[in-house]
Deep mutational scan, measured.
Amino acid sequence: KPGPLPPNLDDLKVSELRQQLRIRGLPVSGTKTALMDRLRPFQD
């Protein structure tokens, strides 16, 4: 099960964002902004 995301996704490196997306079965392509947008729904 994926762990909790930090409140500020901007603090994560692109590689860390991609890792979080992979865990959730989401696409890992695109800019850092696109990756963050994709992860936002999973934040508490």
Rank of each mutant, 00 (worst) to 15 (best):
K1N: 14
K1W: 00
K1A: 02
K1S: 02
K1Y: 03
K1C: 08
K1D: 08
P2F: 15
P2G: 15
P2M: 15
P2N: 12
P2H: 11
P2R: 14
P2E: 15
G3T: 14
G3P: 08
G3N: 09
G3H: 13
G3M: 14
G3E: 14
G3S: 11
P4R: 11
P4S: 14
P4K: 15
P4I: 13
P4A: 13
L5N: 08
L5P: 00
L5G: 08
P6H: 11
P6L: 08
P6Q: 08
P6M: 10
P6S: 11
P6C: 12
P6E: 10
P6D: 09
P6N: 07
P7R: 15
P7A: 14
P7V: 15
P7Y: 11
P7M: 15
P7L: 12
P7Q: 15
P7F: 15
N8R: 11
N8G: 03
N8D: 08
N8I: 06
L9V: 12
L9M: 04
L9Y: 02
L9S: 03
L9R: 04
D10L: 11
D10E: 15
D10V: 13
D10M: 13
D10S: 08
D10K: 11
D10N: 11
D11P: 02
D11N: 12
D11E: 11
D11F: 10
D11M: 13
L12P: 00
L12C: 04
L12Y: 15
L12G: 03
V14N: 04
V14E: 09
V14K: 10
V14D: 02
S15E: 14
S15H: 13
S15F: 09
S15G: 11
S15W: 10
S15I: 09
S15C: 10
E16T: 04
E16W: 03
E16D: 08
E16S: 05
E16V: 05
E16Y: 07
L17H: 01
L17E: 05
L17K: 07
L17R: 03
R18S: 04
R18I: 10
R18P: 02
R18V: 07
R18K: 13
Q19H: 06
Q19E: 13
Q19D: 12
Q19W: 02
Q20C: 06
Q20W: 01
Q20G: 02
Q20E: 14
Q20R: 03
Q20P: 01
Q20M: 04
L21P: 04
L21K: 07
L21T: 04
L21I: 01
L21F: 01
R22E: 12
R22S: 09
R22C: 09
R22H: 03
R22N: 06
R22W: 01
R22D: 12
I23V: 11
I23S: 13
I23Q: 09
I23D: 12
I23E: 13
R24P: 05
R24M: 14
R24Q: 02
R24L: 05
R24V: 04
G25E: 08
G25K: 13
G25L: 00
G25P: 03
G25M: 07
G25F: 10
G25W: 00
L26F: 07
L26K: 06
L26A: 05
L26H: 00
L26G: 03
L26E: 07
P27G: 06
P27R: 07
P27M: 07
P27Q: 12
V28R: 02
V28P: 09
V28I: 15
V28D: 15
V28W: 10
V28N: 06
V28H: 08
S29C: 09
S29F: 08
S29P: 03
S29E: 14
G30M: 00
G30C: 02
G30P: 03
G30N: 01
G30Q: 02
G30D: 04
G30H: 05
G30S: 01
G30Y: 00
T31F: 02
T31I: 11
T31L: 07
T31N: 15
T31H: 07
T31P: 09
T31M: 03
T31Q: 08
K32L: 01
K32V: 07
K32C: 02
K32H: 01
K32Y: 03
K32P: 03
K32S: 00
T33I: 14
T33F: 10
T33P: 10
T33E: 15
T33V: 13
T33N: 12
T33Q: 06
A34V: 13
A34S: 09
A34Y: 12
A34K: 06
A34H: 15
A34W: 00
L35I: 14
L35P: 04
L35A: 06
L35V: 05
L35W: 04
L35D: 05
L35Q: 09
L35S: 06
L35M: 13
M36E: 05
M36S: 03
M36V: 10
M36G: 02
M36R: 09
M36Y: 02
M36I: 11
M36D: 04
D37R: 06
D37E: 15
D37M: 08
D37F: 00
D37V: 03
D37I: 03
D37Q: 10
D37C: 06
D37L: 04
R38S: 05
R38H: 00
R38C: 00
R38D: 01
R38E: 05
R38M: 05
R38T: 07
L39A: 03
L39G: 04
L39F: 02
L39K: 03
L39Q: 05
L39T: 03
L39M: 06
R40V: 06
R40H: 04
R40Q: 12
R40K: 15
P41Q: 12
P41S: 13
P41M: 09
P41D: 07
F42P: 12
F42T: 12
F42Q: 11
F42E: 10
F42Y: 11
Q43P: 03
Q43Y: 13
Q43A: 12
Q43M: 12
Q43R: 09
Q43N: 09
Q43S: 11
D44W: 09
D44L: 04
D44S: 07
